[in-house]
Design a protein around this nucleic acid. Sequence first.
DNA 1: CGAAGGTTTGAGACTAATCAAATAAAGTGG
DNA 2: CCACTTTATTTGATTAGTCTCAAACCTTCG
Lengths: 248, 248
Amino acid sequence: MSPLDVTRSRMDGLGSEAEICINCGSRSVGLCAPLDAAALGDMARATERIRLAPREPLFRQGEPATHVYTLTDGTARLTRVLADGRQAAIGFRFPGDILGFTPGAEHAFGAETLTEATVCRLDRKRLDALFRRYPVLERRFLELCARELAATQDHVLALGRFTAEERCAAFLISLVEAQEKRGHAGPVFRLHATRADIGEFLGLTLETVSRTFSAFRKRGLIRLHGQSGIELTDRDTLAALAAGEGEA
Amino acid sequence: MSPLDVTRSRMDGLGSEAEICINCGSRSVGLCAPLDAAALGDMARATERIRLAPREPLFRQGEPATHVYTLTDGTARLTRVLADGRQAAIGFRFPGDILGFTPGAEHAFGAETLTEATVCRLDRKRLDALFRRYPVLERRFLELCARELAATQDHVLALGRFTAEERCAAFLISLVEAQEKRGHAGPVFRLHATRADIGEFLGLTLETVSRTFSAFRKRGLIRLHGQSGIELTDRDTLAALAAGEGEA
DNA sequence: CGAAGGTTTGAGACTAATCAAATAAAGTGG
DNA sequence: CCACTTTATTTGATTAGTCTCAAACCTTCG
C-alpha cells in the first residue's frame, strides 16, 4: 500500500466494481450491497445522468451540497482553496468513486473534471430519506469518510516528510495501483492532469514535477507517451523510492 | 477561522462544553444532546475513567480499536507512522475531544499524552450497541469524521503551500482559538509539546520552529514563558502572516 | 500550417535542513 | 535548597533541495 494513495478513499474492499453507477443502484456495488431490492429501486429512481466537458466544475467549495455524485466515466480532481486564493488539489477521482458527499450543508471542497466525464447524481434530500429508511447506508458513508480521512492523513505525511522524488514516485505507484484495481491493466496510464495539476497535489511546482519525471525517464524508471501517457518500466525501483529507500 | 486549525475536529458548534466527559453521558455535550435520559444512562454505565502519565500512549496505530475515549483533562497528540519508520504528528487534542473512534477494526493512527491526563473510555461493543439503538448517534460520528477530514485537508494545504513562518503563525493562532473556545482565556497558553513535536506537526525541523518563534519574539509578536508557555502579544500581525499577508 | 497551451531545461536565488556547539530549563538526589 | 544531570532550546555556519524567472521546445487542435 503506497503511503501517498490518491485512491484509497474509493469503495475498494467494499465489493465495488468500477464503471458501475453506485447511485443507480446496482447491487454489485459496495454502497448498495446491504440494501434489499426495494431500496435499490428507491435509489435508482432518484438519480439522473449528466455529461461534463473537460475542466468543468461539478461543484464548488462553499456551494450548498444539493447532490451526491458517482463518477461513471472520466477523471476528476478535488481542490480546496483558502481565503487568500491559494489552492491545492487534494485528490483525483476515477470511475466508481463517490463525489460530493458531506454531512454538512455546504461542500468543503470543489470538484472539476479533467477529461470528458459522466456522472450520476442523487438528490441530497432523497439520500437523507434513504438514510432514514436504511440506516445501514449511513454506516457505509461513515466508512467512506474514515477511509478518506486516512488517505488524507497519509498525504499530510507525504507533504511534510517526503522529498520531491519520493512524492513523485509514490504518486505514480498509487496511480498504477488505482488503475489495476479498476481492471484497466494496460501498461500506459493516462491521467489527464497537467504538470501543474500534479504539482498542486504534491506541493511542488510544475517545473519540479517535470524535472523529477525527466530524471525518472533518464534512469529508465518510466516512459512518457505524449503529454498525458505514463508507463512504469521499473516499478520496483519506484516503489523503493516511494518508501524512502533512495539510499539504503 | 485559521487555515491550520489543530482543533477544528472537536465538537465545537455541537453544543459541547470543555471538561465534561462525553462518554459519561452529560446532556450538555454535543454527542449526547440528541439522546434521551435512558440512552444517557446506557452510556454512563458503560464508561470507565483512566489516568495517564505524560508521554503515555492511549492506543497505537494498528492496534484493535477496542475503545473510544474522551479526553477530560490534559493534552494529547495524534501520530501516524509509515512502514519505514518516518512519522508525523497529525493533530493535538484537548479536554472535551473524542479520541480513537473509527468504523474500522484497527486504529489508523496512534495517540499519546503530552501531559498528565484523564480519559473516559467506552467499550467499542457497547458503542456499537448504542448505535443500533440510537441511530442518530451514528450521524454525530459521521459529522465528527467529516469535520476532521476538512481540518486534515487544510493541513495538507498548509504543508504544501505555506512557508515556515506562515505555518508557525497559523499554528499559534489555532492554539489560542482552541483555548478560547474552551473558556481558558488567560494570556499565556501552555501546550506541553516540544519544538520537535511542533515540527513534526508542521513538517519542519525543531531548529526551524525555534528560529521562527525567536523571530516572532524579536518582532514583539509573542512572548515565551518558560519552555511551554506562549503568549501572543500581537495577534493581528500573526493572523495576517498566517493568511499569507507577509508582504502585502 | 499556425496558434495556443503544455513541457522541458537552464541559471540563479532563497528557504529550510543539517551539523555542531552553547545556553537555558526542568528534574533528581543529596 | 543547591549542585548535578538530563533534556530542551537557541543560535551559528554550511549545504542541499526546491522555487523563481526565463527561454526554447513539443503537442494538440483549429
